[in-house]
């Protein structure tokens, strides 16, 4: 399904492409749709998990950095590599200066299979950007999932995999003060995500 925003973006790309002689390197399209930051009330906030190096991770230690968070699992050779490749495109578009750090967090919803070592190997293999994998006990993960209004369900049987996980695909944008400012949808174009990151530094 192509939603309205993508259509608008395509239209603006077509329009600008038609008359400008700017270099066509990836860049944020002027006039492209920009996320409208929202107040998510009680959703979001600090949490503590274990990172892929086995160290304690606290979101509150990230003050001053912008943070992107998504939920997934490494037993997924399809969607997650695709998302990471999309984020690579986003960061290439932005070319952020060092004083504008962005931390990307990948929280597993399958702690049974995703040990810190497993996550580290997977992320080092696929990621061309700096992504920190986070895992924990099932209860710890569930707390963060609920806190962020995410969801997942375990589907057992019917596959040689033993079980598969269905999970929400939101990409959360957290500002320098640790506040949730936006939830990107799976279908959002890299340009739109990049526009959100650019806006948060303004």
């Amino acid at each position: 399904m192509i939603h309205f925003r993508s259509i608008m973006l395509m239209l603006s790309v077509t329009f600008i492409g038609g008359c400008a002689s700017e270099p066509s390197a990836p860049a944020i399209v002027p006039g492209a749709d920009i996320p409208k930051f929202q107040d998510y009330g009680d959703f979001g906030g600090d949490f503590q998990l274990t990172d892929h190096n086995g160290e304690v991770f606290r979101l509150e230690d990230q003050r001053g950095s912008v943070t992107l968070i998504f939920f997934g699992y490494t037993f997924c050779p399809d969607a997650c590599p695709t998302l990471m490749s999309k984020l690579t495109t986003v960061f290439n578009m932005l070319d952020l200066p060092e004083e504008h750090p962005v931390k990307t967090l990948y929280i597993t919803i399958d702690p049974e299979r995703d040990s810190p070592e497993q996550m580290k190997e997977y992320l080092q293999y696929f990621s061309t950007i700096d992504v920190l994998g986070l895992t924990g006990t099932e209860d710890e993960i569930d707390d963060v999932v609920m806190q962020y209004g995410a969801s997942y369900e375990k589907v057992e049987g019917g596959t040689a995999a033993g079980y598969l996980m269905n999970h929400s695909t939101w990409l959360y944008l957290i500002d320098q003060q640790g506040k949730l400012r936006y939830r990107f949808r799976h279908a959002d174009e890299p340009e739109f995500v990049a526009a959100g990151l650019k806006k948060i530094f303004e």
């Binding site: 969607a79 589907v155 019917g158 596959t159 996980m165 695909t169 939101w170 799976h186």
Partner: peptide, 16 residues
């Protein structure tokens, strides 16, 4: 196995 990935209401489902 043959699987399909379905995105529904911002949920990703993988099913045989």
């Amino acid at each position: 196995e043959m699987h399909e990935m379905v995105y529904e209401n911002e949920m990703m489902k993988m099913q045989p």
